[in-house]
Amino acid sequence: MKTILTVDDASTMRKMVSFTLKSAGHQVLEAADGAEAFATAQTRPIDLVIADINMPRMNGIELTRNLRGLPAYRSVPIVLLTTESDPAKKNEGRAAGATGWITKPFSQDQLLAVVAKVL
């Protein structure tokens, strides 16, 4: 069982990701934006961060950048959720130090496959 932090301002998305990961036996923490996620990440060890890119307060890319600035998160996998309309964001995410991306929409299996890959 791993601890996974899912970050999305859309509560439905967050729930969906969280449910999928929980049913695969993981422990899931939720955060509604980057700032909240960044705060949560500093309170406990996390094995994987799955974050939406476009969020208020702190977006997914800023979150990635900030997390990479913490020694404990230098090598923790960070997967960004993106949409096909912003391919440029993908490169920004990469530059910020993200581990990978998933394009919305995605299926539960796709999500689990990616998670299995990076953990």
Partner: peptide, 18 residues
């Protein structure tokens, strides 16, 4: 529909590659 980037690699020079 998903992928992985280089883990800790500075991205700038490998941008086109990606």
């Amino acid at each position: 529909r998903w992928g992985l980037f280089g883990d800790e690699e500075p991205a700038a020079e490998s941008k086109e590659e990606t």
